[in-house]
């Protein structure tokens, strides 16, 4: 029995490893970033490191604008597509579309960014106006990134609704759409909501693709229109980390941005995994 015990200990160590990594990341980030976390950091309106001004409020608002728009676009296209695939389409159509959508889940973001930079940005500049680099471009690029995953998860949770529910509703004389709206969607809603929340988290943490298309102004401001350029939290870290001097408040401020990102994404994860899924089980 001794070897069995040792094996189970080793396996436990392996299982704790990712917990340890997350713990270490948290400690590292907090250690460097926590001293900057104060109201003037979170609500300050100016980000200008050479003047020692570290206010992330416009960046935060810009990030939320881009993420919200992208999620709205992805939802508007993704959820109906998922409903179509699971409820209205012939089996073979669903199979073809679903597997091609699954294929491109997690397509390299840098390729999407490249597309945004060489196709979307000039297109927006020539046809919509502004410099092309804009919130709008960020929306489209991010929507591209979260759409395949959203369709896949939403379709899975729609199909997880037992057949008998649908049959019962149809037998009562409801139309296909009434059945979907009154029976299928409510039963699948927690799964779909979890998919959306995870999509928000993913969009917020995305770095490269958005960095290439949102414009990154010298001093970010609170955006007033969809053609305004913004900075994302992630792109601020990516652009500035390489030259922030060791031990300068600039470096701590960048870590503090990391802390803000980390907590927002973790909170979203927490909501998705615990609150929504638990409800689902009940």
């Amino acid at each position: 029995m001794r070897t069995e015990d040792i094996i189970s200990k080793i396996l436990f160590l392996c299982a704790s490893f990712s917990a340890v990594i997350v713990f270490m990341i948290t400690v590292f980030l907090l250690q460097e970033g926590v001293r900057m976390l104060n109201p003037s950091f979170l609500f300050g309106k100016t980000w200008s490191p050479h003047r020692e001004l570290f206010g992330i409020f416009p960046t935060l608002v810009g990030t939320l604008c881009v993420v919200a728009g992208a999620v709205v676009i992805a939802t508007a296209i993704g959820i109906p597509s998922a409903i179509f695939l699971s409820e209205f389409s012939p089996f073979w159509v669903r199979n073809i579309i679903k597997s091609s959508v699954e294929l491109i889940v997690g397509i390299p973001s840098v390729v999407i960014g490249f597309f945004g930079l060489t196709v979307l940005v000039p297109f927006i500049r020539d046809n919509v106006g502004g410099r092309g680099e804009s919130i709008l471009a960020g929306w489209i690029v991010l929507a591209f990134m979260i759409l395949p995953n959203l369709i896949t998860i939403a379709e899975d949770s729609l199909r997880a609704v037992p057949r008998s529910y649908r049959e019962a509703s149809l037998a009562l004389g409801a139309t296909r759409w009434q059945t979907v709206r009154n029976v299928v969607l409510p039963s699948a809603s927690s799964g779909i909501r979890a998919a959306l929340v995870l999509g928000v988290g993913r969009a917020m943490g995305e770095t490269m693709a958005v960095l290439m298309v949102v414009g990154n102004p010298e001093t970010p401001w609170i955006p007033l229109g969809i053609l305004d350029r913004v900075r994302m939290l992630t792109s601020t870290i990516a652009i500035e980390f390489s030259y922030a001097e060791w031990g300068s408040s600039h470096q701590y401020a960048l870590f503090a941005i990391g802390v803000v990102l980390f907590f927002m994404v973790t909170a979203l994860n927490f909501i998705a995994t615990f609150v929504i899924r638990r409800k689902n089980i009940q």
Partner: peptide, 8 residues
């Protein structure tokens, strides 16, 4: 860890 932003 699965949801952690890659830049972090």
């Amino acid at each position: 860890l699965a949801g952690m932003p890659s830049i972090v």
